[in-house]
Design a protein around this nucleic acid. Structure first.
Lengths: 413, 413
DNA sequence: TCTTTTTTTTCGAGCCTCGAAAAAAGTGTG
DNA sequence: CACACTTTTTTCGAGGCTCGAAAAAAAAGA
């Protein structure tokens, strides 16, 4: 069972809460923080004094032009130099890393083209360590790097330490976190890209993407990130959300994963290409259908009725039924479509909605709204960054008082 | 955002934790409670002294035959008279209510046959109020009723106050909680039966059903309760878990819900009956296929190859694909099959497993184990009871200190 | 310059948990 | 039967934390 609350937890949690409030609000005054957190002014005063003394927060001079009478509010902000994170995004043939300061500003970035499908596991790991080393070297004035977040296309384990399976590499169960921690002695997390996209959406537009929503990546494969009750929803063992491999039609079209009838086998880039070009649905999926190819097919589909348009209809139907099955479990929620497929959503929307209407999801159709955003890369990095920063807020700057440490120090004494 | 932790929350939460520990352990000593909760002996001593003084807990004399040296442990137990709950289970043509004492013992029970499908909404509500009144009247020595839990087949809202849709009645969006609260002035919850079954399984066998598992009810319809991270998983608006209405085959067999291709349209009682008797899969579903009919079909299926055996194979396939799609989202987990269909699982297991193997779920097949339990009624009541009791533990005997109250009393002063 | 207004800090009160020590309530042993 | 031993439970003081009230600070208005 879950453990009782110790007295020290109180301060710890409220510290984390203050940091979170400042991160969200930007430059709030103490009074604003008190209002948002529900804590008293005196408590906020005490906690922020601590955090300022520790160099985690800082007062920013003369930022709030009050115009009101009374003592002016003094704005508090995150100290950009208090820490830094490295956010690494690994996708097909592309590796990108950036250092980001504690207050969220990008300090340096480094991008590389590589051949992920043909690289050995060892080369891939070395390349990651190397790009991190480079980007850190180019950030001499940054605060200390206290967290490295890696976002990857594919299935990660629920502890966020390993890449279990990925379409971008033939290797399985790669221990990214262990290896990178070994190299830098900094805690590392390995997360699914779509989960990070969901995280980013919440930071970007908290109005729309509040506590329950779904991000779907329409690209070579189909990915999904689900936010439930304000938390990224993961499976019990893995990052979960294998929306693309839900079975749409038992025994149906051949999927890249070797199974038949997955949603992806109708709606992934290669599937759209395969259908638009009149190939058999059981023909082996082709690698390397780029975003440009999809855009070209979409152009032709918009121009005239034909196999291209039908291909998008088929894709929409698969997505719609998949969403309907998803909604059978978690109800409808706002949906963000991300990636190249999102730019062709006009060609799919009708069939998506028709399919949903044939499922339980149709009951809540008023709750379903679609929003599109083509640039998945940027979102992925943002989400990875914000999650790494939030980790520092809660786990490093508001740490657990460790029983084990107490035991050890009392042994020494 | 979530609100800061006030000082009073500390005691409140630790009180709830102590009550939970006692409920789970039965008759623990203070030392045992301290060990389980991680709180210190002195804290447990103080909290339990409070709870005993309030008549919520009680010391039980001479229960722990120690045989050890030293001061004997004194056992602490829930005071059976501290409170009571009424647990109501409403299913097709059947209404059942029971009063249960604070320590979990059944005090009185009342069962009724009725005709849920032909009753008016008003009659249904009246009948519920009436059966509660009766069973409470028959429990004169019980503690005060502080919570009423209603478990119903069908979709409830996520606030647990309304029955949105149910196969047992033609009426929709019935405000059970409001109506019953009006009659008894006691807080009421309305929950999905399968969610309660999941709750019950965790109390019954915490070893096997720990934090992540799935309960599936195979009956006239197909229901599901999912436990994730130790909590019943619900949708964002409703009780969620409409496993039976995930689409197995787009455009396929006609379901009771009017849609085509739902899992239920292949695996519900009426679907098995329809297939076993050689009817067309688009023939209108028949009501009133009882458990006996299914058992008879199962007998014939076990005796010889034929349409009966094929019907169970088809059902298994639908369940298997459904589970596979579910596992794509939440990973594989142990499964409990409940209801009459569970008694025919021997006829379905092979096709269930074959279907799962064709989905992403097949990856983690080692995590999939099936357990069967025919008596759904008993489980539903148990789950509803335990949830109501846990509500009293946390919400009534360890209540929030209410800001509104403080404000009001300061206004009066 | 003095008053008003608003924010922030200070200070004492009241809880809470914890560890250590004391008290309690048995068993074993000579 | 007395006394040592063991284990559980209670008591007590220390140290933290949050809170409300009061004080201090820092401006705008008169």
């Amino acid at each position: 069972m879950s453990v009782g609350i110790r007295h020290d937890d109180l301060r710890r949690r409220n510290r984390a809460m203050v940091l979170g409030a400042v991160r969200r609000a930007g430059q709030p005054s103490r009074t604003e923080i008190a209002a948002v957190t529900g804590l008293s002014n005196s408590t906020i005063s005490a906690i922020s004094a601590d955090l300022i003394a520790e160099g985690i927060l800082a007062e920013t001079k003369g930022e709030i032009a009050s115009l009101k009478r009374g003592r002016p509010q003094v704005a508090i902000a995150l100290n950009a130099k208090a820490a830094a994170v490295v956010s690494v995004v690994l996708s097909l043939d592309h590796l990108s890393a950036a250092t980001i300061g504690y207050s969220g500003e990008v300090i340096a970035q480094e991008d590389r083209r590589l051949h992920t499908l043909s690289m050995s596991e060892e080369e891939l790991l070395r390349e990651c360590v190397d790009v991190i080393r480079k980007v850190v070297a180019r950030s001499p004035n940054a605060g200390p790097v206290l967290r490295i977040g890696l976002a990857v296309q594919g299935v990660t384990d629920s502890a966020a330490r390993r890449l279990l399976w990925s379409p971008i590499t033939p290797h399985q169960d790669i221990a990214f976190a262990d290896r990178i921690e070994e190299a830098f002695a900094v805690p590392v997390s390995v997360e699914n890209d779509c989960n990070m996209i969901a995280e980013a959406l919440r930071w970007r537009d908290p109005e729309r993407y509040r506590s329950d929503f779904i991000a779907i990546l329409l690209s070579h494969g189909i990915g999904m990130g689900v936010m439930l009750k304000g938390k990224v929803f993961t499976g019990t063992h893995s990052s979960g959300g294998e929306f693309g491999h839900m079975i749409h039609r038992p025994g149906g079209a051949l999927c890249r994963c070797g199974r038949h009838g997955c949603v992806e086998a109708y709606a992934g880039n290669y599937a759209i290409w395969r259908n638009a070009n009149g190939h058999d649905e059981n023909e082996q999926p082709v690698d390397g259908i780029g975003d440009d190819d999809i855009r070209a097919i979409a152009e032709r589909a918009r121009a005239a009725e034909g196999p291209e348009r039908a291909a998008f209809r088929t894709a929409g139907e698969a997505i719609g039924y998949g969403l309907g099955n998803l909604f059978a479990l978690i109800d409808a929620a706002p949906i963000a479509l991300v990636g190249v497929g999102a730019s062709a959503f006009d060609l799919m929307e009708t069939s998506v909605r028709q399919a949903i209407a044939k499922t339980v999801g149709g009951l809540h159709s008023e709750a379903i709204s679609f929003d599109t955003e083509a640039n998945e890369m940027q979102l992925t990095r943002e989400g990875s960054t914000m999650q790494a920063l939030a980790f520092i807020d809660t786990e490093i700057f508001a740490p657990q008082t460790r029983d084990s440490e107490l035991v050890q120090s009392s042994r020494i004494a």
